[in-house]
Simulated assay, not measured.
Amino acid sequence: MKNLKLKALALVAGAALSTSVLAEAEYTFKLHHMLPPVSNAQVNFLQPWADKVEAESNGRIHIDIYPAMQLGGKPPQLFDQTRKGIVDMSWTVGGYTPGRFPKATAFELPFMPLSARITSMAMQEYAETEMQDELKDVHLLTLHTHFPGSLHSRTKDIKKLEDLDGMKVRSPNKMMADALNILKANTVFMPVPSMPSALSKGVIDVTALPFEVVKPMKIHELAPHHTEFKGDRGFYTQFFIFSMNKKSYNKLPDDLKKVIDDNSGVPLAGFVGDVFDAYEIGARKDAVDNGNTFNTIEGAEYDRWKDTLTPVTEQWIEDMNDDGYDAERLLDKAKTLIEKYENF
Rank of each mutant, 00 (worst) to 15 (best):
176 M>H: 06
277 D>W: 06
328 E>A: 13
107 F>L: 04
257 K>I: 09
54 E>G: 06
264 S>F: 10
25 A>C: 04
211 F>H: 12
167 M>W: 05
32 H>Y: 08
290 N>R: 15
211 F>D: 10
99 G>H: 01
235 F>H: 10
206 V>K: 01
34 M>V: 02
280 E>D: 12
329 R>K: 15
146 H>T: 15
231 G>M: 03
124 Q>F: 05
303 D>F: 04
100 R>P: 00
264 S>M: 09
134 E>K: 04
66 Y>S: 13
170 R>Y: 00
57 S>E: 01
6 L>C: 03
285 K>L: 14
84 K>Q: 15
281 I>P: 04
258 K>W: 01
318 E>L: 12
122 A>R: 03
17 L>G: 00
11 L>I: 13
151 L>P: 06
299 G>T: 08
319 D>W: 04
304 R>T: 07
297 I>D: 04
133 D>S: 13
28 T>N: 15
255 D>L: 05
200 S>R: 12
106 A>E: 13
62 H>E: 11
271 F>V: 08
330 L>W: 03
332 D>Y: 10
67 P>K: 07
324 G>R: 03
245 N>I: 09
134 E>N: 03
148 P>A: 08
172 P>Q: 11
137 D>L: 07
342 E>H: 11
170 R>F: 00
138 V>D: 08
313 T>W: 00
314 E>K: 14
243 S>L: 01
54 E>V: 11
167 M>K: 02
228 E>G: 10
22 L>Y: 01
298 E>I: 08
299 G>W: 07
58 N>M: 10
277 D>R: 09
211 F>I: 10
78 L>Q: 09
167 M>Q: 06
105 T>K: 03
280 E>V: 06
263 N>S: 09
197 S>F: 11
83 R>F: 09
331 L>G: 03
40 N>R: 13
39 S>I: 08
8 A>R: 12
337 L>Q: 02
230 K>A: 14
291 G>N: 07
326 D>V: 00
319 D>K: 13
47 Q>E: 15
210 P>L: 07
219 I>E: 03
137 D>T: 10
238 Q>C: 10
3 N>M: 15
139 H>K: 15
48 P>G: 03
319 D>M: 06
333 K>N: 11
141 L>N: 05
230 K>S: 14
160 K>V: 11
326 D>K: 11
